[in-house]
Nucleic acid binder design. Sequence first.
DNA 1: TAGGGTAGTCAAAAAAATCTGACTTATTGT
DNA 2: ACAATAAGTCAGATTTTTTTGACTACCCTA
Lengths: 104, 104
Amino acid sequence: MTTLIIMEEKETCPAQRLLKMLSGKWKAEIFRLAVESPLRFNNLLRQIQGSNKQSLATALKELEEEGLLEKITIKLKPLHIEYNLTDKGKALIPVFQQLEGLSQ
Amino acid sequence: MTTLIIMEEKETCPAQRLLKMLSGKWKAEIFRLAVESPLRFNNLLRQIQGSNKQSLATALKELEEEGLLEKITIKLKPLHIEYNLTDKGKALIPVFQQLEGLSQ
DNA sequence: TAGGGTAGTCAAAAAAATCTGACTTATTGT
DNA sequence: ACAATAAGTCAGATTTTTTTGACTACCCTA
């Protein structure tokens, strides 16, 4: 019998958790587009050049798990899925604005 | 003859650059400690449990290259090296505070 | 009913980040 | 003079992230 113990690294730095949420090659860009309007998968794939399905799917899933985006099924007309910023996600907008201000 | 072309990915998202600077397993913690007081290598190694020399050395080098930390040799008394936040680094303090505020 | 669009999943490969242990060089403290 | 401390470097191993390509399944339109 084998017992595998995986120790969850406990956070020492409070900002680290948030930073981790936004780390990853495509998340910032996804977030930025989400601020503008609801996202759709294949749309995103075309908008973010250089990206790929798998990575976007993973990033979207993580952003969703982290509670920054919510996935909703639009049951009307052309029946599709949308990703929207949650309130928690919207709370991060000022952080992005601040970062963008600094990057000048 | 072979020609190898490596294309630098150009940034689409302005915040991405800053976010990238602070991404990495130890950077947020290093930054947090740097806000408190000047850093010294072996000191840091003891303070940040679970870290290792190589990773800290790399992180410090990157933070330095990014212009967030500056490395100075204290030529007095016990002759050692210190890492301090630069003005650019200090400019990021509000971002961290904001993130810490959100993480409650 | 065939083709195209939407929204993915899966396994495997490749690339990037992180960790380990051994080694270095210079400076101190005893 | 000797050992300890400081501040690393280096190569190789391991882990994590990101990418690729193939494959689903469900609409929708002509």
